[in-house]
Write a protein that binds this DNA or RNA. Structure first.
Lengths: 155, 155
DNA sequence: TTACTAGTTAAGAATGATTCTAAATAATAA
DNA sequence: TTATTATTTAGAATCATTCTTAACTAGTAA
């Protein structure tokens, strides 16, 4: 069976890049931490466990390459650090985030909620949308005073 | 008549801060460049013209203070630099941005397009929204090949 | 084999944005 | 007045990120 790694390897080859051991180790870390919004430093520390000889600059270069190929999304929550997420396979758009002002948790929303809004923007501002970033800041269900319910699982 | 500066002075006083000459000069620069998305460095260079003795650290501190008081919005387009905009008076929410991938222009959308989306998110994810950030990336009307029309003015 | 080429790497230096430190100054209160 | 507190400047320090250099690797041709 073709694994996710195999498909990423193909994507690299299609763009004339190789899946070097360092790159593969980096991708494996990202696969093992799909929802964790790791910073470059985080990735570096984790990758060092499975490929101790790797350099921080290589991690940065690899993440940049993967971002260019749209295999990962580079995100920025305004804390001065870029974070990297593996993009959902086949997803045309970036997913959205819920950032809790209380506990700092970052939850993800996979659905595209913006279809209607995008139609308005494209028409009204004559702007051809390629991608979007949407983040909500507020209080998550865990931090509500009482009677907080866990939301239904992402559809 | 009460000016914008006067109102900002009151907001500072209400939070036990003073409108020092350096802070006033910084605010004046922001007022003169309302739609320009200035970086801290930009603000510093401009402010130096009207208050040459000011230090860069003071500009950073002032912008941080104004951000805390929600007088300015601190934004981040992912280029490693924070930018600062005076918030529309009375606006509860951040405005949105259209970032052109071609020419780098950043246009603003003042309307709140997200009322419906927010209602869904609050209910579905049990998340109490305080603010949001929405940015579209794409091709602006100026960069379209032909027949590009300037959009209607912001309502 | 040998050389040649292009891509990739590690290490550490360099950069650039931002924050911190220390000493000075200004405003305020007693 | 004195004491206290907030604010400032200048420059040092920090931190994330990028750049530079030289070494290394795989592939290819002779």
């Amino acid at each position: 069976m073709e694994t996710r790694i195999d498909r990423i390897k193909k994507q690299l080859h299609a763009a004339s890049y190789k899946l070097t051991p360092q790159r593969e180790a980096t991708v494996r870390i990202l696969l093992d931490h799909e929802e964790d919004h790791l910073s470059a430093e985080d990735v570096y520390l984790l990758v060092k466990d499975i490929a101790p000889e790797i350099g921080l600059a290589t991690v940065y270069r690899t993440l940049e390459l993967l971002t260019e190929l749209k295999i990962v999304d580079k995100i920025n929550f305004g804390d001065g650090v870029s974070r990297y997420d593996l993009r959902q396979e086949g997803a045309a758009h970036f997913h959205h985030h819920l950032v809790c002002l209380e506990c700092g948790a970052v939850d993800e929303i996979q659905e595209d909620l913006l279809e209607d809004v995008e139609a308005v923007v494209e028409k009204r501002w004559n702007f051809q949308i390629k991608d979007h970033r949407l983040t909500f800041h507020g209080i998550c269900w865990r931090c509500h005073d009482l009677g907080a319910d866990k939301p239904e699982k992402d559809a």
